[in-house]
Design a protein around this nucleic acid. Structure first.
Length: 326
DNA sequence: CGACTAGCATCGCTCCGGAA
DNA sequence: TTCCGGAGCGATGCTAGTCG
C-alpha cells in the first residue's frame, strides 16, 4: 500500500480551492494573531477571533452547499469493498460531516428525497433496497495497514430507517471518525458532484486514489495490480487480468473521464515475463480547473499583497503609538 | 509453456413498470 | 410511500484457442 505523508492539501489549489483559499486566510489570521500577540490589544484579539469565526462559518456553509468529501489518505488507500448504494450512503454522509472540527456529531440523517435526487435514483428502488443496503453496510469492514499499524473496523456502528418519516440515519463508528474529521494533513477532498453519476462501484475508489495525487502536482501514479486489488478488496477475484481490466479499470477510467474533473488514461507495465505487474495511471486536470486555478492564484496574490500592506501599516501605527518610531 | 483473449453460462444486483 | 415481479446488465468462472 502506498501512503505518502507529504501531502498537505492546504498548500495547493484546484477546482475546490476557494475552500483552501479560505483556509489560507484563516492560517494567515492565526499567524498574524500569533506574531502580533505582544502588541495586539485584547479588543483586537476579540475582533480577530470574530473574523476568524465568520470565515469558519462561511467555509462551513460553503462546504455544506458544495457537499465536499474529506477523507484521510489512509482511508483512501484502505482495503474495503462497498456496493454502489453503500458507497453513495457513506459519501453523502461524509459530505455532511464538518471535517475540520475536532469533535462533531457521528450520527447523520439523510432524507430519502435528498438521497434519490442526488444520485438520480427512483423512489421505488430506494424503498426496495434501502433496508438491504443498510444491513450490508452495517457489516462492512475497513482494513488499514502499513508498516506501523494494522487496523480493522466497521464503517458504521448503528443504522435506523424510519418508514413513516422517510429518512434514514447512520452513526459512523468511533474508529472511522479518526479518518474523517480533524484532518490537518495527509488528506484529500473532492466535490461529491464529481462522483454522483458513477454506475460502477470501483470508479469512486480509483477516482479517490488519483485525486489524492492531484494535490502533489504529480500526474502519474503507478499502482501494482496486487495493491490495487487489495485496496478494492478484490484479492481473490478477477483471477484473469483481462476481466479485471474490463470490469474494473476500463469502466472506472471511462466514468472518471466522462463525469469528473480529471482526465485519465493508463498504461500496462509488464514484469520480466509477459505478466502485467502494474498499471500506470496518467492523469490531468480538465481545462476549467486550470483556468480556475489561474484566477484563484491571481486573487490570492492580490489578497496577500493587500493583506501585507495593511499589516505593515498597522504594525507601524502601533509602533508610532508606543513611541518606538518617530 | 505461460499469459492473454474470446465466448459462453450462471448468479446476483440494479433498474423499471405497475399496483396497493 | 411501499411492495412485487421481471428485465437488463455486470461479475465471475470455465473452456478453448492464440501468441510469443
Amino acid at each position: 500500500m502506498i501512503i505518502d505523508n507529504s501531502n498537505n492539501a492546504f498548500d495547493l489549489f484546484d477546482d475546490d480551492d476557494d475552500i483552501d483559499f479560505d483556509n489560507e486566510i484563516i492560517k494567515e489570521f492565526d499567524e498574524a494573531v500569533a506574531k502580533n500577540s505582544v502588541i495586539t490589544t485584547s479588543a483586537e484579539q476579540t475582533k480577530n477571533k470574530k473574523n476568524n469565526d465568520v470565515i469558519r462559518q462561511v467555509k462551513t456553509e460553503e462546504q455544506q452547499q458544495k457537499l465536499l468529501v474529506y477523507k484521510s489518505n489512509y482511508l483512501v488507500n484502505a482495503s474495503y469493498k462497498l456496493s454502489l448504494n453503500e458507497q453513495r450512503i457513506i459519501l453523502l454522509a461524509i459530505s455532511k460531516l464538518d471535517s475540520r472540527e475536532e469533535f462533531c456529531e457521528r450520527t447523520i440523517q439523510i432524507k430519502s428525497n435528498e438521497f434519490c435526487d442526488r444520485f438520480k435514483i427512483k423512489k421505488s428502488d430506494f424503498y426496495n433496497t434501502i433496508n438491504l443496503t443498510l444491513d450490508s453496510l452495517f457489516n462492512r469492514v475497513v482494513r488499514i495497514k502499513n508498516d506501523e499499524i494494522k487496523h480493522e473496523f466497521r464503517f458504521i456502528s448503528s443504522k435506523k430507517y424510519y418508514n413513516n418519516l422517510s429518512y434514514f440515519e447512520i452513526t459512523f463508528s468511533n474508529e472511522i471518525m479518526n479518518y474523517l474529521i480533524d484532518l490537518k494533513d495527509n488528506f484529500s477532498k473532492y466535490d461529491l458532484k464529481h462522483v454522483v453519476n458513477f454506475k460502477n462501484k470501483h470508479s469512486v475508489r480509483i477516482y479517490e486514489m488519483l485525486n489524492e495525487f492531484k494535490y502533489k502536482n504529480i500526474k502519474k501514479r503507478v499502482i501494482k495490480i496486487e495493491e490495487l486489488k487489495e485496496c478494492l478488496d478484490l484479492k481473490n477475484e478477477y483471477l484473469r487480468f483481462n476481466s479485471f481490466r474490463e470490469s474494473v479499470i476500463d469502466k472506472a477510467v471511462n466514468e472518471i473521464n466522462k463525469y469528473t474533473n480529471i482526465s485519465v488514461r493508463y498504461n500496462k507495465i509488464y514484469n520480466s515475463s509477459k505478466y502485467v505487474e502494474a498499471i500506470e495511471f496518467i492523469f490531468n486536470f480538465k481545462y476549467s480547473d486550470v483556468e480556475n486555478k489561474a484566477k484563484i492564484n491571481t486573487d490570492k496574490k492580490f489578497y496577500n499583497k493587500r493583506k501585507m500592506e495593511e499589516k505593515n501599516s498597522d504594525i507601524k501605527a502601533k509602533k508610532i503609538g508606543m513611541g518606538l518610531v518617530l
